[in-house]
Simulated assay, not measured.
Amino acid sequence: MSNKRSSSGNGPTQRQLRVGELIRRTLSDVLNRAEVHDPDLNRMSITVGEVSCSNDLKVATVYVAPLMGSVPMEEAIAALARNKAELRHRVASELTLKYAPDLRFRPDETFDRLDETRRLFADPRVQQDVAAPTADDRDGEED
């Protein structure tokens, strides 16, 4: 019998989630304590929102955003990319993995999507649809 080891497309495995969270915490701590030897990066306040790992845990995609828009997103990602080797070394020293994952930095657009969702819910047409009773609600009132 063959043992299917790869994910069946149902999302990340528990191990991927656990390693991603450990990488996120480690990077957050390193950036918060300004342990990197780059004064430009140490001046930036960067939040690490999420880390997703590949199936083999060799690539970690790190979603980052400058806090309160203190610096442009492109500048923050460029500074992180410049210091990728040092950050990877710091992560590797904290984790007990066979391979240190390659770090790839991407903009975290979670807050932008949240703002767009709030804007959509504030739309009067959406409010009207939310407030309108559905057929299921009307059926429940007759009982």
Rank of each mutant, 00 (worst) to 15 (best):
L87K: 13
H89R: 15
Y63M: 03
A65Q: 02
R18C: 03
V130G: 01
A79V: 04
T110F: 09
P72V: 08
V19G: 09
H37E: 12
I46C: 05
L80G: 04
E35Q: 14
A132L: 07
V64A: 12
I77V: 10
V48M: 06
G69N: 13
V126S: 08
Q127G: 09
A34W: 02
R15Q: 12
P72E: 15
P107M: 10
R15A: 11
V64H: 03
S93A: 15
A34K: 15
E116V: 10
E116H: 04
I77K: 07
I23F: 02
N42Q: 09
S93T: 15
I23N: 02
E86T: 14
M68D: 14
D123E: 11
D137R: 14
N10T: 11
N32C: 05
K98P: 11
P107T: 04
R118W: 13
K98H: 15
T110C: 08
R106F: 14
L87P: 03
T96P: 00
V19E: 05
N83W: 04
K84Q: 13
G140Q: 12
A78D: 06
E86V: 06
M1D: 08
A132E: 13
D137P: 00
L80H: 04
D136T: 12
M73C: 10
V59L: 09
V62T: 07
A78Q: 09
R43V: 04
P101A: 00
V62F: 02
H37F: 05
A131C: 03
D115Y: 08
T47F: 15
T134C: 09
E75I: 07
M68H: 06
G69Q: 14
A132R: 13
Q16Y: 02
L31F: 05
E21R: 07
L57V: 02
T110K: 14
L95G: 08
D137H: 08
R25S: 12
F111K: 14
R88S: 13
A122Y: 01
L17S: 04
R18I: 06
A81D: 10
V36H: 05
R106V: 15
R106E: 15
R24H: 00
N32Q: 11
D139Y: 10
A92V: 05
S8F: 09
A65R: 01
D143Y: 12
D137L: 13
R15S: 07
S2G: 07
E35R: 14
S93C: 06
V30D: 06
G49D: 04
A76D: 05
R88K: 15
F111L: 15
G20K: 11
S93P: 01
P39R: 00
P133Y: 07
A79K: 01
A60R: 09
M73K: 00
S2Y: 12
Y99T: 10
S54Q: 09
G9T: 06
L97S: 02
S93V: 02
L41H: 03
L17E: 10
V59R: 12
Y63V: 01
A92D: 13
H89L: 00
Q14D: 11
E116W: 03
R90W: 05
I23K: 00
T26S: 10
N55D: 12
Q127S: 05
R43E: 09
V91A: 03
G9A: 08
R5Y: 14
V64N: 04
T134F: 10
R15L: 12
N32L: 08
M73Q: 10
D38S: 10
D123V: 11
R104T: 01
D29C: 00
M44H: 01
L67H: 06
M68N: 12
K58A: 06
T117F: 10
V30T: 12
A92P: 13
R24S: 03
